[in-house]
Every structure is written in structure tokens, then in C-alpha cells.
Amino acid sequence: MSDSVLDFALRAPKAELHMHIEGSLEPELAFALAQRNGIDFPFASVDALRAAYDFSNLQSFLDLYYACADVLRTEQDFHDLMLAYLRRAHADGVVRAEVMFDPQTHTARGIPMQVVFDGFLAGIAAGEKEYGISTGLILCFLRHLSEDECLATLEEAKPFMQHVLAFGLDSSEVGHPPSKFVRLYAACRALGKPVVAHAGEEGPPAFITEALDLLKVNRIDHGVRSVDDPAVLERVARERVPLTVCPLSNVRLCVFDDMRQHSLPKLLAAGACVTINSDDPAYFGGYLGDNIRAVQAAFNFDRTVWYQLARNSIDASFASTADKARWLATLDASLCAPGAASDSNGPLDE
């Protein structure tokens, strides 16, 4: 592996498009918030909590994820969580963060929607001031709940629409196909916002097709199973459907047994618009930089691949045209920096 390639991949300006803010809750912060809020936390220590991060599938992760989210109670808690993530993202070269959050996880516990939004927005403002990161909120619905419950959440969120960048769909994929949420997504699109959805992680390639045809999504979150159906793979490549791939998450949730088995090289070879993201970084082994290091260790990509991945992330973001142009100009300049053309590792040789 060339250190200069890795340095370029880490420093290049990029967007993170698939990161659940509740999934960035580090054990140390979880314990601090539990103490601040007087919560009887079900783990004896930080080490005991980290030891619980051994997942056999998505559901085993979600069970712990929801238990830990219970420490988030006040506006300050949500502020602190957001700012902690943006600090880490800045260190990994992130200039644009499109952050997913699950209001139903909090409102179901009696936390007012106003508290959630105010806390996150305060954290975003602090992150922009301190680190210059442009950040938008993706309001995600929990797919293991009913469509009617999700529609009720959408109605509850309407007073905050000026703060919502886009809508998404997350939680348990198996047993909850995109077709379950046709009315919900029609209502979301009617509000003039972009829509995204998790599909093709644990679910089959057919879920990707449903998300595109029935929900009319702008991006597919994950999408790594598209390689299992040549027609689906050809379509996402031809239509330049962005795939927000989360490599470490896929391995930790046993979608792939090993990073070297990941479908990422096949997706790239097919011409898919792939982006690299961290998903739930506190639980899955690291933030965006850690994902980049793990991918590079497995596949030894060259600089041109990392440039394309960074460019894809900016192109696929919902940022303004002017912001995209500014970040892409910086990315192009970094590619043309002295020594930038010295790497050639044949990244897609399979």
C-alpha cells in the first residue's frame, strides 16, 4: 500500500452521505450523558459496553443501538452528540455531512421533537463555526414500524421542514420491503424534498428495484447486493444511482465475512456511483477515515479511484451547485498537487 495514496484519500475533500448520528454515540459519551441525566445505565463500564459490540446481524446491533440511545434526553445531549461527530468528520476531510437521524427513537421515549431538532441544529451551527463543515439533516423513518406510524411522524415533523434536507428509511430491512412505504414516500416527495432509502444490504437486489421504482429515491443507502443481480447492477450504473456504501459496517454485520470479500471492487468495475461512508461508526469499528484505511488495506486502490470516490460523494450530495463546484475545485487541485500522478496500483484487477 502506498502511504501517499492513503494520505490523499484521507485528506481529499469529501462528503459523508450515510451516517446515523445516534450510531456515533461513543461509550465514553454514553456514560457521561447517563451520569448527567441520572440514568441507571445497563452496563457496568465503558469496557463492558464495548464488549457488547459483537453483532451477528443487523437486529442484534439494533437492540443495543436503541438501548444506548436512551441516554439522549436534553437539547444539550443532542448538541454534544452532533458536535462530537463533526469533530471526527473534519479530521477525515469531510466538508459536507448529510446526517441521518431517527426522530421516532426519541419521540417514542417522550422526548419532544423540538428538543431533538434544537439540539442537533445547535450542534450543526457549532460545527460549521469551528470546522467549516456544511451539514444537513436526513429525517429517517423506522421501517420496522407501520407506515401509518411513519406518516404520523411526518405530520409531527412538518413544523420543522425548513431544517430537513431529505427523508430516509432505515432499521430492519428483512421483512420490511420498500413497497411497504409507498404512501409515506409519496407524501415526502410532495414536500419537495429528496428521498433516500436503505436497500440491498441484508435485503435482496429486488429491494433496490422497489426503492427506485416505487419510492422513487434519489440515492440507495448500501446497495451492495446489487452485484447479485446483473440487471440491477447494470441499471444503477447506467442511471448513476448513488450507492452510499459502508464497508466496515457490512463486515461487522456479517454481510461479508471479510473486507476482501466486499463487493466494492465489482461495483466500481461496473461503473456504479459508489461513495464510502461510516454508517454507525461508534459500533462498527470507526469513522470515515477508518473505513478508508480498511478499504485501502484490502484492495490497494490507486489515487484515481480515491479521487473518483471523493468526487462521487460530492456529486451525490444534496448541497448547492455553488458549494459542489467549490469543493470539486479543491479536490481537483489536490489531485494535481506535486507527486500526485506517481501512483498506479491497478485497483480493479480481479
Rank of each mutant, 00 (worst) to 15 (best):
residue 208 I to T: 06
residue 282 A to V: 14
residue 76 Q to L: 15
residue 175 G to Y: 02
residue 59 Q to A: 13
residue 350 E to W: 12
residue 123 G to F: 03
residue 326 R to L: 06
residue 107 T to S: 06
residue 54 D to I: 13
residue 9 A to C: 08
residue 29 L to A: 00
residue 335 L to F: 15
residue 79 H to F: 15
residue 189 R to I: 03
residue 112 P to L: 06
residue 291 N to C: 08
residue 23 G to I: 12
residue 313 S to L: 11
residue 287 Y to F: 09
residue 268 L to C: 15
residue 256 F to M: 10
residue 57 N to C: 04
residue 321 T to I: 10
residue 270 A to I: 06
residue 127 G to P: 01
residue 239 E to S: 13
residue 122 A to R: 13
residue 188 C to A: 14
residue 79 H to V: 12
residue 172 S to T: 01
residue 175 G to N: 03
residue 59 Q to I: 11
residue 185 Y to A: 06
residue 30 A to K: 08
residue 56 S to D: 10
residue 298 A to E: 07
residue 34 A to K: 06
residue 209 T to S: 08
residue 137 L to Y: 01
residue 211 A to M: 13
residue 27 P to Q: 04
residue 251 V to M: 13
residue 295 V to W: 09
residue 285 G to Q: 07
residue 261 Q to Y: 11
residue 346 G to D: 11
residue 293 R to Y: 01
residue 105 T to N: 02
residue 114 Q to P: 01
residue 26 E to W: 12
residue 347 P to A: 13
residue 189 R to V: 01
residue 214 L to D: 05
residue 25 L to H: 07
residue 300 N to C: 02
residue 254 C to D: 11
residue 223 G to D: 03
residue 174 V to I: 14
residue 281 P to V: 15
residue 106 H to T: 06
residue 284 F to T: 14
residue 134 S to N: 10
residue 313 S to H: 10
residue 184 L to N: 00
residue 17 L to E: 15
residue 215 L to Y: 06
residue 152 A to R: 04
residue 221 D to P: 14
residue 103 P to E: 08
residue 344 S to Q: 14
residue 139 L to R: 02
residue 82 M to C: 15
residue 161 M to I: 04
residue 253 L to F: 08
residue 319 A to E: 10
residue 74 T to G: 05
residue 245 V to R: 13
residue 340 A to N: 11
residue 72 L to E: 11
residue 292 I to Y: 14
residue 64 L to P: 02
residue 192 G to H: 12
residue 140 C to L: 02
residue 150 C to F: 00
residue 84 A to G: 10
residue 150 C to G: 04
residue 21 I to A: 12
residue 47 D to V: 13
residue 63 D to N: 04
residue 232 V to M: 10
residue 183 R to S: 04
residue 324 K to V: 05
residue 213 D to H: 14
residue 349 D to P: 02
residue 180 K to Y: 01
residue 183 R to A: 02
residue 204 P to H: 04
residue 61 F to C: 07
residue 43 F to S: 10
residue 9 A to K: 12
residue 224 V to T: 12
residue 249 S to C: 02
residue 348 L to K: 13
residue 254 C to A: 14
residue 259 M to W: 04
residue 131 Y to W: 07
residue 55 F to Q: 08
residue 342 S to D: 15
residue 249 S to Y: 01
residue 189 R to Y: 09
residue 210 E to V: 13
residue 164 V to Q: 11
residue 284 F to D: 11
residue 271 G to Y: 03
residue 239 E to T: 13
residue 264 L to A: 14
residue 59 Q to M: 15
